[in-house]
Design a protein around this nucleic acid. Structure first.
Lengths: 340, 340
DNA sequence: GTCTTTTTGAGGTGCGTACCTCAAAAACTT
DNA sequence: AAGTTTTTGAGGTACGCACCTCAAAAAGAC
């Protein structure tokens, strides 16, 4: 039989009340007693029964997912998974809610964050660019007793332990390597497309991409990043201009999570010889493009896994536990038509 | 507030005892009453609180992982993950145990399975070749009230709903496509290596591989599968012979989960021009080979995910629940040095 | 209508923990 | 040493459900 709190109390030579105080970090216990209890925990191998604990706590968890208001296709997929997971984990007393913020206006975003109360949320997973205002808002949020975790978009390095998402430098490098290998002996220029280079994600992906290209692949010339600013018009414009200016384009790397327009453009080029095209994030349109052979590969981060991992991380933080690191590392997935 | 059994009883106009009888499928309830309760469940959106249920049941779950005795490196990784996960889920009242069987002797294996009692196990995840004896043993096991799920190696098609693992045809196709794309314009023969072609997994992978090769890549010639029978000597022998017989070998596809010897052989060939090599399953040695550039790609199924998924599936079966399909699909991962 | 069988209700206990109160004991002050 | 503060103990209730018993009610058989 597994030892219970009662056994622990006996083993430590203290009362149940004291065990409770130690386990839940309440004050009013001498350090000596705390140590004694902890020693007993080690000795008898006590492990708190999380099932009973959550039942007794009688308050599951309420987690919020803070997402940008302006959404691309990938965001829709994420939201779908949040809802789906929320549905399924109601039975485990976990509630999830989506909160949208205007990520282009840091002040407004920070204000929205400051409105989130510890009464309504036990934890927040946030996907937002890294700005001083948001950093501050997150700091204050933690002070209010709300756990936080960065989600897909990393915030500053220092608390990287609470980031759920992929290593974007490695993701860029993966894209670079695949591009190079798929191109084989072909030589020429490679277009790189991003919504904006203001964002950390794009910068990191580009860094990783260039790192691969600059070593060992002198036959390719990766052009400066083209910025689409998220509008179809500008996307078509910059692409048209780029193809006019460079006649030797052999590859296209779409770094942003909104690939629809660029894919459409690539498809219209079909008459000429094939251009190796790599994009990020699996969405209905990238998936279709992959099947139609317009896209050659997709670099993906499993949205379901990310959502579950964010929730597990937040829950562990709430319960003052460690997470199982191996379970929480988000893989950089390579998708081709065959392993969809 | 979420409705509890009490609310459900009131809504259905029956007593708590009857609600309990219906929820837990006990006998002695008229069909009419059962329907009434189910209708009330729908109406008020009742969802059983699994946390309270497992606590009250006062018996977590005991799951067994039945694995082959003769182990390759991949199996070690699997076992490591089973232990790691077992450790972590003790707090959730789930115990896991590894049982080894002699998979080469179907009778002995079936006998070992028949010894597993419902007193000791609530469910079994089994990794074993598909033989009539094992099929029968599994059937009887289910009759004894033990849930079963096929694990990595699929059993017959019919109950594919309880299979946790990858689609091996698709995995073979993925390997094929990568091989073709990495080779580019190079033409020549491709070696395919397996432990044995008796196993369903190898057959399916080969099928998928050939399906890709035969369409659209006439420049390659995939040679008949070489069987290693799992011994280093034979592996070296068949490889030496194959390279002697075919001077135009450009690719090597290692289908089995034990790739060490073959990788070693491939490495010794380094003097000549590079051969595109693809293997399955991430292990310490395949990982190292990928980093050392001896391997070009690795087709992997995440062992941690598989283990967790098997446990979730078994648990859902025990609780007579559906699983969230999207969460349980095991991805065919493509690994290269950059996304390890 | 009586008797038998089946179905239902009322009530209880326990799971392991959280969280609460109040009094007693122990540890420091001065 | 007396008073003050801090620490500890004893005991309770609650969470939502599983599982048990026994009696009462309803349904079916004749």
């Amino acid at each position: 039989m597994r030892p219970t709190t009662k056994d622990l109390a006996k083993a430590a030579g203290v009362s149940l009340a004291t065990v409770d105080r130690v386990l839940n970090g309440r004050s009013g216990v001498r350090q000596k007693t705390v140590d004694a209890v902890n020693a007993a925990i080690e000795r008898i191998g006590f492990q708190r029964n999380q099932v009973a604990a959550t039942l007794a706590r009688q308050k599951g968890y309420r987690f919020g997912f803070v997402l940008p208001r302006s959404g691309d296709e990938f965001l829709d997929v994420i939201i779908k998974h949040i809802c789906e997971f929320g549905q399924a984990s109601r039975a485990e007393m976990i509630e999830t809610k989506v909160v949208r913020i205007n990520e282009h206006d840091p002040h407004q975003a920070a204000k929205a964050l400051s409105r989130l109360s510890a009464n309504d949320y036990d934890g927040i997973a946030i996907m937002a660019p890294e700005t001083p205002q948001i950093r501050d808002a997150l700091y204050r949020m933690r002070e209010r007793g709300i756990q936080t975790v960065a989600f897909i978009s990393n915030q500053q390095e220092e608390d990287s332990q609470s980031f759920v998402g992929i290593d974007n430098i490695a993701a860029g490098a993966t894209a670079g390597r695949l591009m190079a290998r798929f191109l084989g002996n072909t030589a020429g220029s490679i277009l790189v497309l991003a919504e904006t280079m203001q964002s950390r994600d794009s910068l990191e992906r580009r860094l990783g991409f260039d790192r691969i290209m600059s070593r060992g692949y002198p036959q390719f010339h990766a052009l400066p990043t083209l910025e689409t600013h998220g509008t179809p018009e500008r996307t078509n414009l910059v692409l048209t201009n780029a193809f006019a200016a460079h006649k030797d384009i052999v590859g296209l790397y779409i770094m942003g999570s909104e690939a629809r327009v660029a894919i459409g453009f690539a498809q219209s080029l079909r008459g000429k010889e094939k251009i190796v095209t790599i994009a990020h994030e699996r969405t209905p349109s990238t998936e279709q493009a992959l099947r139609a052979n317009t896209l050659d590969a997709l670099i993906n981060q499993d949205p379901g896994h990310i959502v579950r991992s964010a929730v597990r991380t937040l829950r562990a933080q709430c319960e003052n536990r460690e997470t199982l690191a191996s379970q929480e590392r988000i893989r950089i997935e390579i998708l081709i038509a065959e392993n969809l």
